[in-house]
């Protein structure tokens, strides 16, 4: 049995390479789409929280509550209304990113040193200019950290979207489980783990480049305080 069904059969991988590549592409697409949509929605929510400070706790609690809905339940709840579609996959996936992204945006803006914003106001920058020219650029590193968490988490959850017929590599995994044929399972699982780690590493590199201004000079820290 194990001869016929090893963990990985290379001849199968070669034969099915187009399916596998298509699965990777679909996985990446779904991940990116989720994060982009998530960032857009989070941006709107963050803007609302900024404009109406009283809404902030509500937005925080709501996004946190969304995050605690078990993924299986979330996908399952949507199937009767939206079917086995990409929409069914996207709604929970986007919802899960919100808590991280909204907080990343707001925390990023919050950690801008008060003196910097105060100076920006005092020398005559308009509120919009202050937000777009000063606070937002300074929030970018924190927002990118949030994107990193959201992206990596999403890669894993996309795998699970296979239960509603979506989710690229997850479908290979489920296919392998259903047929008890290990090659698609192994390849799907390994590639999704690899994808998560690669994207994580890519973000690490991005984070290093994103803030050329935060030069690491211990001596200057005291002066800047």
């Amino acid at each position: 049995m194990s001869e016929r069904n090893p963990l990985l059969r290379w001849d199968y991988v070669v034969a099915q390479r187009h399916t596998i590549i298509a699965a990777v592409i679909e996985h990446v697409q779904l991940t990116l789409l989720t994060v982009v949509l998530g960032l857009a929605v989070a941006g709107v929510l963050a803007a609302v929280a900024l404009r109406w400070g009283r809404a902030r706790p509500t937005i925080g609690a709501a996004t946190a509550a969304l995050y605690t809905i078990p993924s299986v339940a979330f996908f399952g709840l949507l199937v009767p209304s939206t079917g086995l579609t990409r929409t069914t996959a996207l709604i929970p996936l986007v919802a899960y990113t919100l808590v991280v992204l909204v907080n990343a945006i707001l925390d990023g803006l919050d950690q801008v040193p008060p003196a910097v914003d105060e100076a920006a106001e005092a020398i005559g920058l308009s509120p919009l200019r202050r937000l777009l020219g000063v606070r937002l650029p300074l929030a970018v590193p924190v927002i990118v950290s949030g994107l990193r968490v959201a992206t990596v988490t999403t890669v894993g959850l996309v795998t699970l979207a296979a239960i509603v017929g979506q989710g690229g590599l997850g479908r290979l995994i489920l296919d392998g489980l259903r047929r008890a044929f290990w090659t698609p399972l192994t390849i799907g699982a390994l590639l999704s783990i690899l994808l998560a780690l690669v994207l994580d590493a890519a973000f690490v590199l991005l984070e290093r480049r994103i803030a050329p201004w935060s030069v690491r000079r211990p001596a200057s820290r005291a002066g800047a305080a």
Binding site: A115, V116, D117, A119, A122, G124, V134, P137
Partner: peptide, 21 residues
């Protein structure tokens, strides 16, 4: 107020330079 401030120099204690510029 914006025009007024642009016409008046302002220096604050914490300097408040824009760290990303």
């Amino acid at each position: 107020p914006i025009a007024l401030r642009l016409g008046i120099g302002y220096v604050i204690q914490a300097v408040g330079l824009f760290p990303h510029r």
